[in-house]
């Protein structure tokens, strides 16, 4: 499934404006400890987190995640969204707790 399709099927909002939505989503990873995510995440996964600071964008870019899904209404600052667009990492806001967010992805077959 592509990021675009994930957004359409869930109705979640995409915070980034320019980041490409044609990346493939192949699995997902839930985590907020950055070294844990860095050490255990895999390319093409959607990363579900409640962390909303600048380093999240760096981790997602280096780990080659397909997108970041911000859970639990964590609030994204504009400079973070701008950096995500710069690094071409789509950032999606689910508005749901981490568990419910992951459950929705499972329902979609991710």
């Amino acid at each position: 499934m592509k990021v675009q399709e994930l957004i359409e099927k869930t109705g979640w909002s995409c915070a980034t404006q320019k980041a490409a939505l044609d990346r493939t989503v192949n699995g997902a990873f839930c985590g907020d400890l950055l070294s844990w995510v860095m050490g255990n995440g895999e390319p093409e996964q959607a990363w579900i987190t409640v962390q909303v600071h600048m380093n999240v964008i760096g981790v997602a870019s280096l780990r080659e995640f397909s997108c970041i899904i911000i859970a639990d209404h964590a609030v994204l600052a504009e400079d973070i969204i701008a950096r995500a667009d710069e690094e071409d990492i789509p950032v999606i806001e689910s508005g749901l707790p981490v568990y419910e967010t992951a459950k929705k992805l499972v329902e979609l077959g991710i």
Partner: peptide
């Protein structure tokens, strides 16, 4: 608070 300090840095690097 920023999600660092998992104690996995050097072990990850070595691996």
């Amino acid at each position: 608070n920023m999600g660092f300090g998992a104690g996995m840095g050097l072990p990850n690097i070595k691996r």
